[in-house]
Simulated scan of single mutants.
Amino acid sequence: MRETLNYLDTQLFLWLNGQHAPWLDGPMVFATERNSWFPFYAVLIGWLAVRYRKQAFGMILALVAAVAISDQTASALLKPLTHRLRPCHEPALQQLIHPVLECGGLYGFASSHAANTFALATGVWLLVGRQYPAVKWLYLWAFWVSYSRLYVGAHYPLDLLAGAGIGTLAAAGCVALYRRWQMRNLIV
């Protein structure tokens, strides 16, 4: 079963990675670079601070906790535990993939980029999605960043799916804790 799943994941990766286009290389490199998104994070924090004033600190803390938990689960727990090579480090695939950047770390399961972006998108959605339905578009951003990791040859599709699941669960848990803390402080 595991071999079949790995084979299917590899074949899907090769097909998706093979759909590259030279004009997409730039946008995908931009999406995959962590520093590209610092202005976005600053605007998001500023918006939350202005819009939610007193509540903003707790909301931002919940988002930071969700991203930290998802990042550490993917990077510090799963990657060393599973030892699944990134596609760009897999000798049998190196001649078959479209590398855009240097490969990076040795192991890829699960994707920290997917975990972190889906944690942020889910956290913001759960916190303010009812008031601001447009924040659902953060999922498109999370998908773009995640897909960029496959595009540059750093992750298999299941790495991204696992990362997205980790991020979603981390955000749901952190927002639930924040809501519980918020209700406790309103009652007291």
Rank of each mutant, 00 (worst) to 15 (best):
S146T: 04
L101D: 05
V67W: 05
V188C: 15
C103G: 15
W144R: 06
R130L: 09
K79Y: 11
E3F: 10
E102K: 04
L81F: 13
K54F: 11
P99K: 05
W125E: 01
H20G: 11
L8R: 05
F118G: 02
A121K: 00
R130G: 13
A68I: 06
Q182L: 08
G46W: 12
N17Y: 03
G153A: 04
N116E: 05
T117D: 05
A21M: 10
W37D: 02
A172V: 03
D159I: 08
Y178W: 15
R84M: 07
V175F: 10
Y107E: 06
V29I: 10
C88Y: 02
A65Q: 15
I166V: 12
P91W: 03
P22S: 11
F40K: 07
W181K: 11
E33V: 07
L81E: 05
Q55E: 13
K54V: 07
A142L: 01
R53C: 07
R2G: 13
G129V: 01
L24K: 08
V64Q: 04
R34L: 06
L161D: 12
F109E: 03
Y107S: 06
G108Y: 08
L5R: 03
Y156T: 06
A176T: 01
L12I: 01
A164H: 02
V67D: 00
A162S: 06
A76L: 10
A142M: 02
T122N: 10
R84D: 03
H98G: 07
S36C: 06
L177V: 12
S148W: 12
P157Y: 05
W37Y: 07
T122I: 02
V135F: 13
T168M: 13
R51H: 07
L140F: 15
L81I: 02
W144Q: 06
A42M: 04
Y139G: 13
G163V: 00
L5V: 06
A62M: 01
S112C: 14
L14C: 00
Y52K: 15
G104L: 07
A92V: 07
Q95G: 13
L161A: 12
G18C: 04
D71T: 03
V29E: 12
V188T: 15
A74E: 06
G129T: 01
L101M: 02
I97D: 03
R179C: 14
T32A: 10
L101T: 03
N35C: 11
Y151L: 05
P80S: 10
F30W: 14
L161M: 07
M59V: 05
F40W: 13
Q72R: 09
T73F: 15
A134Q: 14
Y151F: 14
K79G: 09
Q182M: 05
R184Y: 11
L150C: 14
A42C: 09
Y41G: 01
M28I: 06
T10E: 06
Y147S: 11
A65Y: 13
P80T: 12
V128G: 15
L161G: 10
A21R: 13
L160W: 00
V135Q: 12
F30V: 10
V152R: 10
A76C: 14
T32Q: 12
L161I: 09
M28F: 14
V145R: 12
Y41K: 00
P39W: 07
V175L: 08
A31W: 02
L127C: 08
Y178I: 03
R53K: 08
R130K: 11
P22R: 08
L5K: 10
H155W: 01
Y178H: 13
